[in-house]
């Protein structure tokens, strides 16, 4: 039973950065922009938050610093992709490489000591319920915040006019422009939001999940988040489910290593990547579903005619 609870809670925690990053990217892609640079934004966010903690700033400020750093990084991509109409694949890759460099540079003085992680909160009364308590009510606040963001983004995309505007820009920026919406400005906002969320994801990794500084500590989580958006066929609920699936995979692999299974640890470590490929293949088979929610203008440069 304890093992089960450990796997369950471990899954929820491991899924949290993926949920942040993938929900952020979902909003970006729904607006028709493809930012491949999540890995870079997460790393920058992770480094900024870690730095803030070392500098003695309070935890909420540190997490905010991570989010803002992610947003600042996304702005570089935004200027290239939205103002200079650069190939979005190239601009995203540039951001991924740049972000990993900047974070490594920032992190050169962080040392290898762990920091005091973000505190878990025991919700009064509820957390004392046997089994249920430890399973659901003893997480750090960011785990709950990630789930709250899922509800907020679902509501925003499908229940508000702004969400409708965002989605329709993703279908056809030409039409949105023709009926008078500021396409570029809205896409900038979406890209910034994506950066904010990726920064949060990175901050969570460095100040809550690990919590220590390792160069390139995201280890592909940014890319997995990107895969999650495809996996989810651009729907928020499936992002949540997908993130838990991958979180579970990570935890099972760690548990497997801890239990000393007679399998090379490298093979276990490779499982999440292997699973990503397999899931992508399966999802790609249903072209109908893919095309139904796919933002038709994704990654196509747009410049309003004057």
């Amino acid at each position: 039973m304890d093992l089960f609870i450990a796997i369950f809670t471990g899954t929820a925690i491991a899924a949290t950065p993926l949920i942040f990053a993938a929900l952020g990217e979902l909003v970006v892609e729904k607006s028709g922009v493809l930012n491949l640079g999540i890995e870079g934004m997460m790393l920058v966010g992770a480094a900024a938050a870690f730095w803030a903690v070392i500098a003695g700033l309070p935890m909420p400020v540190a997490i905010l610093a991570g989010a803002l750093a992610g947003a600042a990084a996304s702005l570089l991509f935004g200027v290239l992709a939205l103002t200079f109409l650069t190939n979005q694949y190239a601009a995203g890759l540039a951001l991924a490489i740049f972000g990993s460099g900047v974070s490594a540079f920032l992190g050169r003085g962080f040392g290898s000591a762990p920091i005091d992680a973000l505190k878990r909160i025991h919700i009064p009364l509820l957390s004392d319920i046997p089994v249920i308590g430890p399973m659901f009510f003893r997480f750090d606040p960011m785990v709950y915040f990630a789930i709250l963001m899922f509800f907020v983004i679902s509501w925003f995309l499908y229940r508000t006019k702004s969400g409708l505007i965002l989605r329709t820009i993703g279908e056809s920026p030409e039409t949105s422009h023709a009926i008078g919406y500021p396409v570029i400005r809205i896409r900038y906002l979406a890209v910034l939001f994506g950066g904010l969320m990726a920064g949060l994801a990175g901050a969570y990794l460095s100040v809550a999940y690990t919590p220590l500084w390792v160069e390139n500590m995201t280890a592909g989580k940014g890319w997995i988040s990107l895969a999650l958006v495809v996996f989810a066929t651009w729907r928020p609920l499936r992002i949540l489910l997908g993130a838990w699936l991958f979180g579970g995979m990570t935890i099972l692999q760690l548990q497997g290593q801890a239990l000393g299974l007679a399998v090379p640890s490298e093979l276990l470590s490779a499982l999440p990547y292997l699973a990503t490929i397999i899931v992508l293949v399966i999802i790609s088979q249903n072209r109908q579903t893919l095309s139904l929610h796919f933002p038709a203008s994704l990654a196509k440069p747009f410049r309003p005619a004057t």
Partner: peptide, 25 residues
Amino acid sequence: VYQHFALFESVTVVENIALSVSSTF
């Protein structure tokens, strides 16, 4: 009224119209 319509195919008629009227959603 454009020759090539300014309509979004993936959403409904009423959502399309809501996008260009300024009243409450």
